[in-house]
Computed example of a mutant assay.
Amino acid sequence: MNGKHPFHDGERAVQARAGETATADRHLAMVGDEVIGGARPFIASQGMVALGNTDAAGRPWASLMFGAPGFAHTADGQFITVDMPASRRDATDPLWAGIRPGADLGMLFIELGTRRRYRVNGTVVRDDGAGIEVMVREAYPNCPKYIQRRVLRTLCHGGADAQSAAGTAFAGSVDGIIRAADTLFIATRHAEAGADVSHRGGEAGFIQRIDAHTLRIPDYPGNSLFNTWGNLAVDPHAGLCIPDFTHGRLLQLTGTATLLFDEEDAAGATGGTRRFITFHLTEWTLRDAMPRAEWTYLDASPFNPPANP
């Protein structure tokens, strides 16, 4: 892929429906087929990366991976190496079931404390006991909007011993994590364009729980590329990852999504777009994925629309 590549049909359809085709075309120039030189030190300085892929059943999963700064790095911008030995991999993380040579992988390097993020989509070319290597297919920066600032103060690296639970309905602690969340990551996939993972954020409570199996997520004004929405327009399967920064847990959901346009939004929950994603749950897993991480919350994004009542 390069800065001149065409959008796929799903992206084009959503851009047209939203009336943002011209804006998307202007922003396409920032998309390249390798990591630009200025972003390579940024990737190497990160201790966290969001990932998205699909399992053997075609279900998308999003997850977070942690390591000492430098655990992810790229020398030439064409391949990204992630140093993650087998001893530190959490076998209960459904994301690992989809990591194998030839498989798609979406990556989002995001520094919450500075609201910087850089998105990379590619293909796994190596998976061994030392880590994985990803061939870059597309890479581009994202704007800093809707990121709640947090700083990762400490992170101790233990073994792959996280406790986990699973279910098929929102209840108990899972329900509480959703209601308090101000950050999520969403994984989608297109058969030709591959896997993608994107950030969504807002005021605590911006994810609306409709019932025990359904969520509604507002879609705020963004870069107009509509990568996530374009993928969902073609393939409705989606995976969500919701971090519980207070208790060190990671809630991962897989299911399907419905795109809603021109919805009633008197409270301004979408920031004026009147677009929502309705997420229909198939399965969730809750893991103690960050028990040794210590976060300090700084402030909310000044761009956040009001949360759903």
Rank of each mutant, 00 (worst) to 15 (best):
P141S: 00
M135G: 05
S45K: 00
A160C: 12
L51H: 03
R137L: 10
N304M: 05
R200Q: 04
V14H: 07
D128H: 04
H199D: 09
N231I: 10
S45Q: 00
T23S: 15
T21A: 05
C156R: 14
H157L: 08
F71K: 01
L225I: 06
I178F: 05
R274T: 07
T183R: 01
A233Y: 10
G131C: 08
G37R: 05
H247L: 01
Q252A: 02
N231S: 11
P305L: 02
R189T: 08
G3A: 01
Y146R: 09
Q208W: 12
V197G: 06
N121S: 15
R26N: 03
T21C: 05
E192S: 15
A169R: 15
A13I: 14
E263T: 10
T285L: 04
A160T: 10
D211G: 13
I178G: 00
R137I: 10
Y220G: 01
T154L: 09
F71Y: 03
E294Y: 14
A44I: 06
T246C: 10
D76K: 12
L259R: 08
A181C: 07
G10Q: 11
G77R: 03
T154C: 09
N304G: 10
D244Y: 07
T254K: 04
L108A: 01
A57E: 14
F206C: 02
E20P: 12
P236W: 02
I80S: 04
R115F: 10
T273I: 10
T188P: 11
C143L: 11
V82D: 02
D265R: 05
G172D: 15
A91C: 08
H237C: 14
P85L: 05
W229D: 01
A56G: 09
V134M: 05
P221A: 00
A57M: 13
T246N: 10
L105G: 00
I147P: 01
V35F: 06
A39C: 14
G158S: 04
R115S: 12
G102Q: 01
A204K: 13
P291F: 07
Q163M: 07
G52P: 11
A39H: 15
P305I: 03
F185V: 09
D83W: 15
M65V: 04
G255F: 00
L112R: 02
I177V: 14
G129M: 08
A97M: 06
R119W: 06
T282Y: 09
F245P: 08
A165M: 02
F42I: 00
F185G: 06
G248V: 12
G248W: 11
T183L: 04
R26T: 11
L112P: 00
L184A: 03
P306T: 02
D83Y: 14
F245V: 11
L112G: 00
F7E: 07
L250C: 08
D211H: 13
A204G: 13
G167I: 04
R292D: 00
T54D: 04
I210G: 02
A13D: 13
N223W: 06
R89N: 11
G102Y: 06
Y146T: 09
A257H: 12
L225N: 08
P291V: 04
G70Q: 13
E111R: 07
T282P: 06
D219F: 11
I277M: 12
